[in-house]
Design a protein around this nucleic acid. Sequence first.
DNA 1: TTTGAAAGAGACCAAGT
DNA 2: ACTTGGTCTCTTTCAAA
Lengths: 161, 161
Amino acid sequence: MIKDDLDWKILEVLQQNSRTPYAVIGREIGLSASAVAERIQRLEDSGVIEGYATTINLKKAGLPLSAYISIQVQKTNHATFVSYIKEFPEVIQCSRVTGKDCLIMKCALKDSSHLANVIDRLAVYGDPTTLVVLSEVIRNGMICKEIIELAAALEAGDMPD
Amino acid sequence: MIKDDLDWKILEVLQQNSRTPYAVIGREIGLSASAVAERIQRLEDSGVIEGYATTINLKKAGLPLSAYISIQVQKTNHATFVSYIKEFPEVIQCSRVTGKDCLIMKCALKDSSHLANVIDRLAVYGDPTTLVVLSEVIRNGMICKEIIELAAALEAGDMPD
DNA sequence: TTTGAAAGAGACCAAGT
DNA sequence: ACTTGGTCTCTTTCAAA
C-alpha cells in the first residue's frame, strides 16, 4: 500500500499540512505535481489515507479542560454502553482496551462542573476513573517510516533462531 | 474568536474534511465562497484552527497495534523524560495528567515485540502500565457547538445562587 | 510510472453594495 | 460584513514517452 520512501515523504508532508499544494510536495521530493496527485489518489483508494481533518484549539474553542476517563463495563452491557457514549459530544476519543477498565475515553470540557456532569452521566454504567489533563506534551505525533524501521530492526537482532 | 453558528458550521465541515472547497461550504451554509474564505482566515489567524492534518490508517500503514502506556515520573526527572519521549516516534500522543501515573501516552506499534521494546525503553524512568487497544470506538470526535451548549445548560440550572 | 500541457475549478484580491 | 467580478494558481485529466 505504501510503496516506497516517496510515498512516506508525501504522507509526512500531508500529515503536517493536508492542504499543501501538490506542486510544493513535488518540489520537495523531486516529482511532478501530477505524479504526486496520482500517488495520493492511490493512497486514498487503498485506504492508507483515511481522511483530511482540521485541528481545533480546544482552549480557543471554549473547551479549556480535558480529561481521560476510564470505566469498567460488564461485557453484557458493552454494546449498549458503546452506543450510549456515542451520544456524548464531549467524548472525542474512545478505545476499548485490555485490563479491568475496559474503555478509556478522552473528553473535551468547559470547566470542572462540566466534568462532574459527564462523570455523573457515565457513572450509570460503572465506576469511572478520571485523570485531568495538565498539559499536552505530544498532540498529533506523526506516523512515519522511522517507526516501521525501528520495529524491523528489532526482529533482525532481538530474536535469534 | 468563534463568532456565531456559521463559524461553527464551517468548523464542523472542515473537521470532517479539511479540503472541502470554500464554494461547497458556502453552498451548505448559505454564503459566498469569499465570505467563507474570510471567516476561515479569521479562524486561522485567531488560532482557533491550529492546522490541517491527514488521518492515516495505522493498520494499512503497517502499525496494527496500539497501546496506552502510563508512567510515574518523579517531578525532578519530568523535563528530562519529556525530552526523552519526544525521541520515540511510536508515541503519537502524550498528556501530563493528575494522579499517580503522571504521563499517559498512546503508541503506534507493529507487533507485541515492538510493544515490549517500547516498554523496556520507557522502564528506565519508571514502572509503565500498559493497556493494549482492542478497538477504536471513537477516533476523532468532532468539536462542535453542542458541547458548549451542554456545558452552558448546566450553569443555568445546576448552580442556583 | 512519470512527464508535460491544456482545461477546468477553486482560491484570492479588490472594489462595490 | 457579505457579494460580485476578474485574475491567478492549483488540481485534474489526457496523451505520450
